[in-house]
Design a protein around this nucleic acid. Structure first.
Lengths: 198, 198
DNA sequence: CCATGAAGTCAATGGGCGTTGACATGCGCC
DNA sequence: GGCGCATGTCAACGCCCATTGACTTCATGG
């Protein structure tokens, strides 16, 4: 028989840093996709091309890994480049699409959403939500009563994320168009600090 | 020794209907609180005062029980009595409060939310979301492009529910006031079928 | 009063998953 | 070159949970 049958599946280079990073990356992905409870260490390890035991060596356990992945998912590249003039429509267009496009930007927020709605992980979030989510939004919005407006803005955004998650696919035709118009209007309205004409 | 020690914990009356109902009630409660993945049949059974095996007898399994609990959680008492003139502010005021007030109404939505954000159960939702949630909103909204507007309305509403859930407590003072103003404005804007001035 | 079946109980099974510790192996330092 | 630590691999263990089937007990109709 050929030694192909005997060959191990690539003996993996010895590189602690790279391994650790690979695990973390896979964890971010799986946790965002499945949430804490449904994500499985074995799958995370496989996605990272690593043995499960290494998760313990490098992170200590599932929960510790989750916390680290959570923190790492909220590096503050947040809304730095958001342009006031166009962002409302950009967001609206993105939200009209399918959850499978735009993985990069959505990923972090989906992570947050999953974490927030699982009873296991929700307690871990309160601090982080403020520091990495609410606060940036608040600062970006600026103006009067930024706290309250940030709450409304964030809530609205989360709502649209959930809607898109449930919808599962992109909108089309006139429905898409109207959806985008309306969502744009909502965001735009929340960006100004003038009291809305209720 | 007294025979209190020998007494079984109330031999349970034989009543199929009542048992079934008790299980269903406990299921609704647990699933809403914990979500599908974290809820445990043993706990549901205990809360219902019933043996686990009966869950299988009456419902077939965990997933089937979940589906039934889901359907039962969406009795259509929905937005029947909503008054166009005041509902926006009513909703906003409720949403500014704590999730612990208004348990009755919140419960169903929490169930929906948990179900929507768990990858296990999300697929089961699409139909139901349309029939019991989107459709009523769509009909209630009426007017042009009701589909798209219903999506936006529903998404927004869900977003505020999540925000309130994460927040955990009522808002106070000026923040509360501004929050209510803004949310009212958002809802009011979504109720009209004139294209918003974006 | 007994046979029959429904309602309820109990113990066991099997699979999945996080965790663990023992073992192998490559890398750098003396 | 060879020792020793760091890195990686492997094979369990133990727990939790849904599911299952066999057993017990109650109620009803003949």
């Amino acid at each position: 028989m050929t030694d192909a049958l005997l060959a191990r599946p690539a003996p993996r280079k010895r590189n602690a840093e790279a391994t650790r990073a690979a695990i973390l990356e896979a964890a971010k992905s799986q946790f965002a996709l499945l949430g804490y409870d449904c994500a499985v260490l074995r799958d995370i390890a496989r996605e990272a091309g690593v043995d499960v035991a290494l998760v313990k060596r490098y992170f200590g356990g599932k929960e510790a890994l989750f916390v680290e992945a959570l923190r790492a998912s909220f590096v503050g590249d947040g809304m730095r480049g958001w342009d006031r003039a166009t962002i409302a429509q950009e967001l609206a267009t993105t939200l009209a699409g399918s959850p499978h496009e735009d993985e990069a930007r959505t990923h972090r927020f989906q992570f947050l959403l999953r974490a927030a709605t699982s009873p296991t992980t929700a307690p871990l979030l309160n601090v982080l939500v403020h520091d990495r989510f609410m606060d940036p939004i608040r600062q970006w919005l600026g103006g009067e009563d930024a706290d309250a407006r940030a709450r409304v803005f964030a809530a609205t955004y989360i709502g649209f994320l959930v809607e898109r998650l449930v919808r599962g696919e992109a909108l089309h035709g006139r429905e898409r168009q109207v959806f985008i118009e309306r969502v744009t209007a909502v965001f735009a309205g929340l960006m100004t600090d003038e009291a809305a004409g209720a």
